[in-house]
Amino acid sequence: MAKSGLLKTFTEPLGKNNPVFVQILGICSTLAVTNKLQNTMVMVLGVTFATALSSWTVSLLRKRIPSRIRMMVETMIIAAYVILVDIILKAYYPEMWKQLGPYVGLIITNCIVMGRVEAFALTNKPLPSLVDGLASGLGYAYVLLIIAAVRELMGSGSLWGYRILGPWWTNWAIMVMPPGGFFILAIAIWVIRETVGKEVSHA
């Protein structure tokens, strides 16, 4: 029973409760870096890390956090993990850190992190919260990776920095520019909702 519960906690955010398609959360900070697959990978790993560990920490402290200031406490916890991500990136991947610019810091305000903490971690035990955070992060990650792959392929003819398409390919400049991100995300949402099922929109 407990085991199947955990499994369900893990699989739901990947499919029918996907944070991006169903809840349309958290696209703010990461959509901006989806014009390159590599940058996106680093960002989604950061988001997954922050979501999982903040959920876990908040869940550990859930009985001690006064409800009046809980948003503040949660934000502090999330910020602490994001600072970790920032410091690690800066130390080991300074080039990547420079390219991502302010977007690493913006993981703090990513609605998914706060959303999972508020909606799940506050009322659940640490282990399920960790799993839920991890799964939400991954559910978010694969969607953004798909978007990034499409944008990089169409916009630069390459994947992960390697040229894939031959010289016959004309780059769609619009894809690596801001409107491209909006269009691809919209199309992705459209396709998923059309094929997987009609979920109720929360927006």
């Binding site: 349309i24 269009f183 919209a186 949402i189 927006a203």
Partner: peptide
């Protein structure tokens, strides 16, 4: 399927 967020994004 495009209603709501989908069309807003476009």
């Amino acid at each position: 399927a495009l209603e709501g967020p989908g069309i807003s994004l476009i």
